[in-house]
Each structure stands twice: as structure tokens, then as C-alpha cells.
Simulated scan of single mutants.
Amino acid sequence: MTGKMIPVSIRIPEKDAAFLAQLDVDGATTLSEKVRALIGEARRRREAGGFASEAVRNLEDIHLAQDRQRRVQEQSLSFHSELVSYLSHWLLETHIACLTQEDWGGDPDEVRGALEQYEASLADQIFVLMDQMLRMGLTTTSRCYNPHVVSGRMEALKELIAIYNKD
């Protein structure tokens, strides 16, 4: 840490102190180090000008933790769902696509172009999901917790596809 250190005394609830003691923050071990690390993290977020990279990191942490917990449960039961695995990955990628458009340009033409590019990126994400769901629905069973979870929902889509194909 660079710069002069200034002592600060704070009082926090016992519950927060216990949480802080258990928190893993950038290799900090003492409560003082952890508080400094949290303040530094908040400062970096503020100074970054944009929040996208920090938000993406947080999203990845959340998704990875959730996926890890799910996989442990699946392994303990010898149970797996391609739908859940794929959707979890897709949600993260789509959420990142929503967050990472920071430079909208300055003049109206740049903004319009950036908005069109943003829309196209999100449309790509939606069609990737649609493609995967249709592929899973081609067979009467899929590698999911419930083997009929996808095929049982395909009838409505088949009707829409038939209407589309009439034109």
C-alpha cells in the first residue's frame, strides 16, 4: 500500500465482524487488511469510470459458484441436465453482452450505430439459445433431469414454425 496510513476506528456489529473474519479478500488476513482491501475495491470501481469489467467479474463469480454447487449435487446423485448447464452458460454470456457496451459514441450517428450493434449482439444471443433448444427438442427425450422437459414444450413452437413456413 502506498501513501501515508491514517488510523481510523470503527464499530461494527458482531455479525459483520464474524462475516469479515471469514471473508476471503485478495489475500488479506487481518480485519484491517480486509477493510483496506474492500475500500480499495470500492475506490477502483468508482475510479474506473465504467462498471462493466467489475460487474462482469462479479457475475462470473456468482455463476461459477452456483454452477459449482449444482455440479456437486449432480455428481452426488449421478444426475445431469444439459438444459441447465447450457442455460447457465448462456445466461452469463448474455448478461455480459448486456453490460459490456459502454462506448455509445458522441454524435447521433455513432450512437445509432452503437445501438444497432448492441441490438444485433443481443439478437445473436437469443438465436443461439433458440437453436440449442430446437436441437434438444428434435428427439423425444433429452439429457435433462426430466428427459421430456424440452420435447413436452415443443408443440407450441411447432405450431409457430408451421405458421412461419406457410408464408
Rank of each mutant, 00 (worst) to 15 (best):
E60P: 00
I96D: 00
I10H: 00
E155K: 13
L83M: 09
E41T: 12
R70M: 08
L31C: 00
R71I: 10
E33Y: 04
I12H: 07
F79M: 15
V56W: 03
T139V: 09
C98I: 11
G50F: 15
L134T: 05
E14G: 14
C144I: 02
G152H: 07
A21T: 13
G113L: 12
S151D: 07
R143P: 04
I39R: 09
L91S: 14
I62R: 07
E41V: 12
E33N: 05
Q125S: 09
A156Q: 10
L115K: 06
R46M: 06
D124C: 05
E54L: 08
Y164R: 15
M136D: 09
L160A: 12
G49N: 04
A18W: 03
D103R: 14
A162P: 03
D107G: 09
A114D: 01
Y118N: 10
F51S: 14
R135Q: 12
V56N: 01
W104M: 09
Q132W: 11
E54W: 08
V25D: 06
R36N: 12
R143E: 08
V111K: 14
S9L: 07
G27L: 03
D67I: 03
Y86R: 05
L157C: 08
T100K: 12
I161G: 12
R71G: 01
M130W: 03
A156D: 02
A97M: 00
Y86A: 04
I96G: 00
D16Q: 06
G106S: 15
L138H: 13
S151Y: 11
T141F: 05
R71V: 09
L129Q: 02
G49K: 02
L20K: 02
H89N: 11
E116K: 12
V149K: 09
A21Q: 14
F79C: 13
P147H: 11
R112I: 02
R11F: 09
S81F: 05
G50D: 15
E155H: 11
Q75R: 13
T100H: 05
G106W: 10
R36P: 03
L129T: 01
S9T: 15
Q22C: 11
H95Y: 03
L160S: 10
D16M: 14
M1G: 15
S121N: 14
K166M: 13
S32F: 00
P7R: 15
L115Y: 01
A114Y: 01
I12D: 00
P7L: 10
G49H: 03
K4N: 07
A120T: 11
A28Q: 04
A42K: 09
H80P: 01
K158F: 09
R57S: 14
I10C: 00
L23G: 01
S142P: 07
